[in-house]
């Protein structure tokens, strides 16, 4: 017998005090936007961007969650049996601010096994939640300095003229690598979302 799943409903406009209090409410965060642990190997990076609606207006009340492998491409999950060597958890959560901005401090993930033993280029999964979104939308962050992107089996599923929406652009700010990744829900440069 199969049980029907519980339907999704919007996170609504008022989730912040429960899910992303971030010092503004009398409640502690379960997760934050800094994923770095002292023992995590790999390159420390910042990911930052903004999220926009169909009018090009910033979405100021959204929540983003990210899920990623460590620098060796291993997930901190029972479903990934490979042993890990750090306490890096690979999960982060943040709200967006009055300009629709978000950021994460993390480490750059390694290449991850893909379908039919094809490696996937380094990437991060993103779940997007907001008022007006009855269910989360899923996208992926790739990195523009990764030569493996050209052979990535998931990017290959995406029409070539839309792939760029999944690739974060590297810059160096105060000697620190920063990748910029904007999310556009609609429009000519609408971000690619996946049905997973």
């Amino acid at each position: 017998m199969t049980f029907g799943i519980t339907p999704s409903q919007t996170v609504g406009p008022y989730f912040a005090y429960g899910l992303t209090p971030n010092g503004k409410y009398d409640w502690k965060d379960t997760f934050g936007n800094n994923l770095v642990t002292a023992d995590a190997a790999g390159e420390r990076i910042r990911i930052e961007g903004r999220i926009f609606d169909g009018d090009g207006a910033p979405i100021t009340d959204s929540m983003l969650e990210i899920w990623q492998a460590d620098a060796q491409g291993r997930y901190a999950s029972p479903a990934d049996p490979r042993p890990r060597n750090s306490t890096f958890q690979g999960f982060g959560r943040t709200g967006t601010d009055a300009e629709g901005r978000f950021s994460f401090e993390t480490i750059k993930p390694g290449s991850v096994p893909g379908p039919d033993d094809t490696p996937q280029a380094p990437h991060i999964l993103v779940g997007v939640f907001a008022r007006g979104m009855l269910r989360q939308s899923y996208t992926r962050i790739y990195f523009d300095d990764e030569p493996g992107n050209a052979a990535d089996p998931i990017l290959a599923l995406v029409p070539a003229d839309r792939r760029g929406t999944l690739v974060a652009a590297k810059s160096v700010q105060n000697g620190h690598p920063v990748y910029t990744f904007d999310i556009r829900m609609q429009g000519d440069t609408e971000t690619v979302f996946f049905e997973i």
């Binding site: 379908p115 009855l134 939308s137 971000t191």
Partner: peptide, 27 residues
């Protein structure tokens, strides 16, 4: 009324789940 400007309008990309989708956080 908040859905029309906040939902994707282009087709979602269908894909088989990889290790990235099949794993998930523990706390």
């Amino acid at each position: 009324k908040s859905t029309p400007k906040r939902c994707p309008t282009k087709p979602l990309i269908l894909m088989k789940h990889t290790l990235s989708e099949l794993t998930g956080p523990v706390y």
